[in-house]
Design a protein around this nucleic acid. Structure first.
Lengths: 341, 341
DNA sequence: TTGTAGGCGTTATCAG
DNA sequence: CTGATAACGCCTACAA
């Protein structure tokens, strides 16, 4: 005799109610074992598990969100979804959340506070359970206000408060390390290309540079400092200005790798060799830097790790615990773009 | 008496019902003007608009999703959220969807069909209204099956069917153009580094290469072809092999920019200059290629535009129309890495 | 044209 | 331990 195909895709969606009926229990009981909300007799649990498997039941996060106020999704405010620096961080967030059954909801704020506020509104309207804000430009106050409604993890600033956790990278020490490396190689005339002054981390890196100079007894020369804004093109322009100013320098420290790429291009065009004529060091350790020609010395920032840490922190907060994650410190990566003076 | 679950202080969430009460109409009427479902008298419309503005009401997409079966979100299956090539595409998708009130839900499949199927499950369980699959590795059949449930736009393959739309780039012509450029510069011994053979586009590019050779009356030399897999490192390794094989070549065509970077690094290390000793051309026109040292000649792929097009296509399908978007053709970008033989 | 009532699929509360 | 039952916020027949 033929058996009817036990098909999970019968008419209509497979709901919790159908599971309950098949298992011969009430919907509440099914919900309970799904969420571990209460202890259920071993017997029923088994029949429910079977029914779930048989039907191929998958809980509907949308309904879940409406009813329980949880959506199992975390809003992630990034400044640009295609940033070479944040890319690995996003991947880290995705990996970490995924293993906990959560999904990230990425939005780009484009370094604009207004847009960032809008992003957060969108995310809240979608009822995300928590928020990760990567180097946001919103005021601390605004952040604290929304932290009253849902837990937030931020990077790129030091801030504390209920429902708020900050994960910050030590840019100052990074700037110090890079400069000290150059000094150790015998360089005395070290130029610097700054990042966007609006970014706190850019200023920290600069402070590391000046302090390292001071420590080494090297007079700070403002003429060797050129403004940039973290974009490749400004690194190139700054280097051009530096070169045309005729101010001598044997090493160049760019506040991030991207500007270092621009600097490298400019030096290349002027026929200057790296590192024979000019030593070059960046900051961030973008994945490409390993393959630049020549491979770029830089300060490593653990972007992927940062992503995982922000995600696990928000997960901890959601579980009612205080996050304990600590950012790894900066690390000097010596490749081929720096050499003895 | 039962206590309400969420203690509804008057400062609770701003719901459609509250708007209705304030405006002195029924919830349905508010819903109607919100969705343009029916004609509403000018008078009520005005009072509703005012109430909405006054309360700062924002419809809850979660509830909307439950009730209406629409979540105003589009699932985007990407292979790696931090891919330098897809980054701009994701940005394009975000921009386009955003202007229509939709949000993208990004997931990474990591070039694994199993993982990709899982991604799609997650997306469907979250009730996305449509799907964008960027260069997926799922079978056409599987795609057609899910297209029965919700509209899909795919890239990187030619496929047709109900609820399915493909947006494909002409990789063959791209490969042709790159090779012809080299030939036009007088090169006769042109090496090639292939992409991952599992990618149809990689094979198309290769076919363009061989056809251009044939057209130019240049004998195909299998020894000048080295396998790669689109990663930087394999470009480097392939070039090393090429060099150590002692087979002469004056130009090198890498099937994508990333491998071209690897090739450039290898050549640099061996003391070979680009383009004086070897002309180098890539494929994709990653944003970095403009700033490589030297800036890389390549075939431009409009990634950002591709993103916008996939998004607008899915939006058109959602509106019940047949998408009409067409991918722009490949474009040769000549920079400094290629020169006369 | 407008309102009423009944879901959508799940969770939380309360009574057994 | 378990099962009704009432939300969650919105949409959509069905009436009026």
């Amino acid at each position: 005799m033929k058996t009817k195909r036990a098909d999970s895709n019968k008419s209509g969606p497979v709901t919790l109610a159908r599971v309950a009926k098949l298992a011969g229990v009430s919907p509440s009981t099914v919900s309970r074992i799904l969420n571990g909300t209460a202890v259920v007799s071993e017997e029923k649990r088994k029949s429910i598990d079977e029914a779930i498997a048989k039907l191929g039941f998958i809980p509907n996060p949308v309904a879940r969100g409406l009813a329980g106020g949880r959506t199992l999704s975390i809003g992630v405010v990034t400044q640009a979804i295609d940033s070479p620096f944040y890319g690995p961080a996003l991947r880290g967030i995705e990996d970490e959340l995924d293993s906990a059954g959560y999904s990230p909801l990425f939005v780009s704020a484009h370094w604009d506070p207004v847009s960032e506020a809008r992003c957060i509104d969108v995310l809240r309207s979608r009822r995300v359970d928590g928020l990760i804000v990567l180097n946001g430009s919103l005021s601390d106050q605004a952040l604290k206000a929304t932290a009253k409604h849902l837990p937030i993890v931020v990077t790129g600033r030091a801030i504390k408060g209920p429902g708020l956790f900050a994960l910050n990278f030590d840019n100052y020490t990074g700037g110090l390390l890079a400069t000290e490396h150059l000094v150790a190689l015998g360089h005395r005339r070290i130029a610097f290309i700054t990042g966007d002054a609006a970014h706190p981390d850019a200023n920290e890196r600069f402070r590391g540079y000046t302090d390292a100079l001071k420590k080494a007894g090297i007079a700070f020369d403002p003429q060797l400092v050129m403004p940039g804004d973290y974009q490749v093109i400004t690194g190139q322009q700054a280097t051009e200005k530096l070169l045309s100013s005729r101010r001598k320098f044997t090493a160049l420290f760019a506040a991030n790798d991207q500007m270092a790429y621009g600097a490298a291009l400019c030096l290349h065009r002027k026929g200057l060799r790296i590192p024979q004529d000019v030593s070059l060091i960046g900051f961030d350790d973008l994945s490409h830097s390993l393959y630049a020609a020549p491979p770029l010395s830089t300060i490593h920032q653990p972007a992927y790790e940062l992503g995982r840490l922000t995600a696990s922190s928000i997960l901890q907060m959601l579980a009612g615990n205080k996050p304990t994650s600590v950012m790894p410190g900066p690390e000097l990566i010596v490749r081929d773009s720096t050499a003895k003076a």
